[in-house]
C-alpha cells in the first residue's frame, strides 16, 4: 500500500500545481482562452501518475475551481467557467492527462513514449475543447463559426501546447533517475495495490 499513499499525496500536490500553473498565464481578450502552464502540469500529471491518478488530479483541480476557488486562469472560478466558451478546454485537461498517462511508458521513462503521450494528450485536449468552444461562439445568431474557423483561431495555441508537451516529455527524461526511485515500475499496470511488495523492495534497493 506504500506507493498508494505516495501517489495519493502526489495527486493532491499536482492538483495544487495545476492551480498555480494557471496563474502563470498570458491573458487574451475573451472569448479566447488564456495561455497557461496548467496544460503543462496536467500533461505532466498524466506522464508521471498514469491515467487513473492523473484523472483524479485534474478532476480535483476542476472540483476546486467549480466550488468557486479562483484557481482557473486570471483568478476565475465557479461553475460558470466550466459552462463558458473555454470550459471545454478545462474539462479537456482531464482527457489530456488520461490520454498522456495511457500512452506514456512509466517504466523506462523514455523521451519518445513520453512525447508521444503528451502530444496525444494535447490532441485529446482539443478534441474535447474545440466543439464546446465552437458551439458557444456559434450560439450568437449574427455569427456562424464553423469547426474550421474555430480550429484556425486555436492553431496558435496548438503550437504552444505542442511545445509544452515536448517540454513535459523532456522533463520526464531529465528526471529519469529520480522518477525511477520515487515511482518504481508497477508489477501489473493499473493495479497499484497489487504491486506494493515489489515496489517496496525496489525502493529499498534504490
Amino acid at each position: 500500500m506504500k506507493r498508494n499513499g505516495f501517489k495519493l499525496v502526489l495527486t493532491s500536490l499536482f492538483a495544487a500545481m495545476i492551480a498555480m500553473g494557471a496563474l502563470f498565464s498570458l491573458p487574451l481578450p475573451p472569448p479566447l482562452p488564456p495561455v497557461t502552464l496548467a496544460v503543462f502540469f496536467s500533461l505532466l500529471a498524466g506522464l508521471l501518475l498514469g491515467p487513473r491518478w492523473a484523472a483524479a488530479a485534474t478532476g480535483l483541480y476542476l472540483g476546486l475551481g467549480a466550488v468557486g476557488l479562483p484557481v482557473f486562469a486570471n483568478g476565475a472560478g465557479g461553475l460558470g467557467q466550466l459552462a463558458g466558451p473555454t470550459g471545454g478546454f478545462l474539462v479537456g485537461y482531464v482527457a489530456a492527462a488520461v490520454v498522456a498517462g495511457a500512452v506514456s511508458d512509466r517504466r523506462g521513462w523514455g523521451f519518445g513514449r513520453a512525447a508521444a503521450g503528451a502530444l496525444a494528450g494535447v490532441a485529446a485536449l482539443y478534441i474535447v475543447g474545440l466543439p464546446r468552444f465552437r458551439a458557444v461562439l456559434d450560439a450568437s445568431p449574427d455569427r456562424s463559426v464553423t469547426m474550421g474557423t474555430a480550429f484556425l483561431m486555436m492553431a496558435p495555441y496548438l503550437i504552444g501546447d505542442a511545445a509544452k508537451a515536448l517540454a513535459a516529455a523532456g522533463l520526464v527524461r531529465a528526471l529519469r533517475p529520480l522518477l525511477a526511485e520515487y515511482l518504481p515500475a508497477e508489477e501489473r499496470a493499473g493495479r497499484p495495490s497489487d504491486a506494493a511488495p515489489a515496489s517496496g523492495k525496489a525502493r529499498d534497493e534504490a
Partner: peptide, 21 residues
Amino acid sequence: RPLALMIAVAFRFIPIVAGEF
C-alpha cells in the same frame, strides 16, 4: 475516505506550492 484526504491535502498545499513557485 481517500477523496476526503486528497481534498484536504490539496487545500493545504495550495499556499505552500504558491510560496514555492
